[in-house]
Write a protein that binds this DNA or RNA. Structure first.
Lengths: 223, 223
DNA sequence: TAACGTTTGTTAACGAGTTGTTAATGGAGC
DNA sequence: GCTCCATTAACAACTCGTTAACAAACGTTA
């Protein structure tokens, strides 16, 4: 069997090297990143079986990264590594959809055992047959679908990003309005409807992703 | 969805009661044992989705029990609860095939989150014969029966949820009306009948669940 | 049992409110 | 001026709780 692929994010260079080295001897195939954005790039570019995220990272923290990863992959095991034994942080990590939360110092053997727990339990990733490629580039304000690039406006990105971060979840109108517009009144509500309409038009090329309305409550982005 | 079934082994009566009570409120269906042999009996007799084992037990310890369980079931998630923060014990538990090892004191919320991690990752046991899957998702306003998703309205969810929370119990018309409509008069009563009718239609695909009328009094959801 | 009033089942129709969609408006930046 | 884009307007389409209407079931009384 080919070794499992691990996305390992740890900004402490020394600790990172030691862990990486040990994991590679198991053997696992390890991709080591030191910042959130770098890891997010790597995650999108590559294909992994497990994510190992340090919570404290320069630029964007591990929780943000986990949320990004979960928004596109609800299945991959995510294990947090943290220097914080803080209970609230542990809970937050788990609530975000993490699978475990190891507090430093942990023994490497324990880490390996834990990784194997989740490898054992995870359904093998199907190569996703008709994978229409789909990516919202929030910085560039572009949406790529099947290599076709569309240019969005800020508001469009804001609304779509908010929904994409919460796939298959009912997002209430007022929640969405407050998040994107900062407040909600009748006209903002109508504005929102206009944007939903525009986004739907943009998404018509991928039937796998759609925005459903729940009458009187809000919207669900399904994917 | 019917609640997951948990085999919970803990010899401390007070702590055991508290945890059991909390878990049942999630809800999970909890079978609480206080000794290893008793738990082994229960495991063989029943059918469970998760095992929660205290390490320190009278007669035979949690490790022995875990080994017994693993010998007949390699799939079921086993979580250890232990007063020992001892690293060697943690490792031993994991080596035995446990999935996690929580050291006391742990927060109950963390325990629940961890249980859900493994429920999510475990292939569903197909125990009972024609187990039609059935789930009312109150947030998303959806009802899933045999993988078929139906979209309900608020009122439908409110009525069905109220009945589902009191299965096999006579729910009086005025009680239901007051709970869902806030008040009861003649027309609300007729409205209720309309909703019962609609819900029955939605439930036709699952004969195991039905709503019976008790003339002049109210309804009983049987399952 | 027959008759009758009450309760319940079921379907359809109504109407207030919500959402979908397109176009017009107007402000900001150039 | 022009361009871009969020907002507002306008109207069409839809949703869904309620009400109406009638049929069926029930329970009581004679």
């Amino acid at each position: 069997m080919t070794p499992a692929r691990i996305l390992f994010v740890e900004d402490d260079v020394n600790l990172g090297f030691v862990i990486r080295d040990t994991l590679e001897n198991v053997p696992f195939r390890v991709t080591h990143c030191t910042t959130g954005p770098e890891a997010w790039e790597a995650f999108q570019a590559g294909s992994f079986d497990v994510c190992l995220l340090d919570v404290m990272l320069p630029q964007s923290d591990g929780f943000t990264l986990a949320r990004q990863i979960r928004s596109v992959n609800t299945l991959i095991p995510i294990l947090f590594l943290s220097a914080l034994a803080n209970k609230e942080d542990r809970l937050q990590g788990l609530r975000l959809g993490a699978d475990d939360y190891l507090t430093k110092p942990f023994s490497i053997e324990e880490l390996i055992l834990k990784i194997n727990v989740f490898l054992r339990r995870t359904v093998i990733q199907q190569p996703q047959l008709p994978t229409t490629d789909f990516a919202l580039h929030r910085q560039n304000l572009t949406l790529t679908i099947n290599s076709q690039v569309q240019h969005l406006t800020h508001r469009e990105v804001a609304v779509l990003a908010y929904l994409l971060d919460r796939p298959n979840t009912l997002v209430r109108r007022d929640e969405l309005l407050r998040a994107v517009w900062g407040d909600d009144d009748y006209f903002m509500g109508r504005s929102l409807d206009v944007f939903i309409s525009r986004l739907r038009k943009r998404l018509t090329q991928i039937p796998a992703i759609r925005i459903d309305n729940v009458h009187g409550v809000g919207f669900i982005l399904r994917r």
